[in-house]
Design a protein around this nucleic acid. Structure first.
Lengths: 215, 215
DNA sequence: GGGTGTGAATGAATTCACAGCC
DNA sequence: GGCTGTGAATTCATTCACACCC
């Protein structure tokens, strides 16, 4: 077997590493220099330089880097990961991810705006609310539907990700419904803990919980 | 030395433990039964029962629990922690935490609403934006100020926490300003990494980053 | 039996240390 | 000298295992 076999299997990266890489992305995109050293990244992020090198090593930066990493190369590598190309040989597949917003209260309504996902791989395809009024009144660049259309729209539009902004009390059962309709990832903006099957990914973004953690 | 000396120093709890406890709080508050077992909590959260017992042990549930924990007791204990009472003998101090919202774009404006912090220890005292228009037009239950009033208002109102909802490009420097004005905790809703002094706490709640993690 | 309390054992993530390269 | 590449050492978090209690 040749050297290629030594390339790390990036599909089961440690979670903290993946998180850091994702956070790195916006920073790298704004970087005007061609190359950047682990030390420079360290001072930009506050993370140890050795940790950054280790992370980059895990995603395949072995040998060949001389005096700092090429910013573009890091960006490309991270993007590759995120697009879950299990097989890097595979065709340049369409890497758009369809999302929806579930719950159009104050917070959900604030997301009815393309700017959130501008120049990203995410496209918001639909908004849902069980309150018909909201669905009719709110204006948005993508269509809004009553909650009873969820199953159908999620299937038709091939939506994989939901941003959950419903009221606390509805969060759990709504998450279950979404999972049953085929949603694979949930960005949970409520402060409820969602218990979902292992293969469903959840990120918790409760502002109230966050406030409790920054005290 | 007596038994009291064995009580854990809850001020430097492991971060993951603290996070779980905070997430537990809303769940416990809705719990209608008087007592709850670690097993029940496990099935509600998806976390291992032994982990939950360990967490509770760390915050002082040693001995004395017979057949499940008293829900109220857990809630109280966690709240005590959050209010940072280093010294449990201390007077029943005022445990309100003053917050502000920095950046009144679509996301920030969505938070101009008491419902977020209702029946919590947090009170939003002010909103800031460098765009005078927004400050004048938006309606809110607390006062809005132009950004140049920040230093003064933060000091006068004794504001310790900021919810950062400015545009990406302004995030870093705004964070630095906030720190220089005495802010101790930042809920960062931008996708920029903020590098702040050690003693300042930051929680990152970027929706775009979260989307990248649930793929 | 079903539950907690608790240290020890395991597993995971980070940091160190240093060889090797320009 | 400054930088990366990389396994080993260390630190940190979770899980196990079992004594004890009702």
């Amino acid at each position: 077997m040749n050297d290629e076999t030594r390339i790390k299997d990036t599909s089961n990266l440690p979670k903290p590493t993946k998180r850091r890489l994702v956070e790195l992305l916006p920073l790298l995109n704004e970087c005007e220099s061609k190359k950047i050293t682990s030390l420079a990244l360290s001072s930009l992020t506050g993370w140890k330089a050795s940790l950054i090198r280790h992370d980059l090593w895990l995603i395949g930066f072995n040998k060949g880097v001389k005096n700092g990493y090429f910013v573009k190369e890091i960006i490309n590598k991270i993007n590759e990961l995120l697009e879950n190309k299990k097989d890097s040989q595979c065709e340049k597949q369409e890497t758009v991810k369809n999302c929806c917003i579930v719950g159009l209260g104050r917070l959900g309504a604030a997301l009815l705006d393309e700017s959130l996902t501008k120049q990203s791989m995410f496209v918001i395809k639909a908004g849902f609310d069980s309150n018909l009024n909201r669905v009719e009144i709110l204006r948005s660049t993508f269509p809004l539907y009553p909650a009873n259309k969820m199953q159908q729209v999620i299937k038709n539009e091939n939506i994989e990700i939901a941003i959950l902004t419903v009221e606390q009390k509805d969060a759990k059962q709504m998450a279950e419904r979404l999972v049953s309709y085929g949603i694979k990832g949930i960005v949970n903006m409520t402060n409820q803990i969602l218990s979902v099957p292992q293969n469903i990914k959840v990120e918790n973004l409760s502002i109230l919980n966050a406030l409790n953690l920054v005290i």
